[in-house]
Nucleic acid binder design. Structure first.
Lengths: 106, 106
DNA sequence: TGGCGATTTGGGAATATTGCCAAATGATGG
DNA sequence: CCATCATTTGGCAATATTCCCAAATCGCCA
């Protein structure tokens, strides 16, 4: 695997890593419904606000969300709704594993 | 976030984690073209065979690939081709980040 | 059965991630 | 300017991941 190819896969892996945490998946799911500020997300999640902020930083670095200032608050929004398609795929995988049968065909 | 909801997100995160490594993304990409045995994958990747075997174990535990014995070799195959859709999404994200414009709309 | 090639497992060191606290920064209104 | 609320950053301990080597296992054939 040459360096260019490797770099391509690492860039992709960075996005997958951003999705590889339950809290961040929750955030994306909620942001798919509406834009939410950090303090509201923090309350929903129940973790320290600095923890939530760092999760948002990871999602932002991956290009998945975007922050927009509104007064002292910062509202986050989903930048790439296509990731939601992946949620559906994850559900089919989980379902097929649970049932022991084949997975989605395409 | 109640426990049931959390468990659901953690199950999904497990799948995202399986995709969160360049080597494993490479493996999935190759397996989308044809079934390949561990030794061939090892040669393509250029890592220790035990490392490749562990990557395959992670993908298998996530329900993404499946091994099939053929003599002494084990051929792996993609169990859930729907993950390939995520590859396309990752490319749009990367492209939109590079160009600084909006991402995929759906 | 014995030996060989293919694969997995165990173990451990290097590295990365997670999540809290404390402190710094930013924005707003008095 | 000062106080206050919202958010980010720094730092650190706990935990998880990665990857090599060595050893164990598995399947086949002589």
């Amino acid at each position: 695997m040459d360096n260019v190819t490797l770099a391509r896969y690492e860039a992709r892996a960075q996005i997958a890593k951003a999705l590889a945490h339950s809290t961040r998946l929750f955030i994306i799911d909620e942001l798919s419904r509406r834009d939410i500020c950090v303090c509201d997300l923090t309350e929903m999640i129940g973790a320290d606000i600095s923890t939530v902020s760092k999760h948002l930083t990871i999602l932002k670095s991956a290009g998945l969300v975007q922050g927009r200032k509104h007064g002292a608050q910062i509202f986050y929004r989903l930048r790439c709704p296509c990731v939601l398609g992946f949620f559906g795929c994850m559900e089919s995988v989980l379902k097929s594993v649970a049932e022991g049968n084949a997975c989605c065909v395409a």
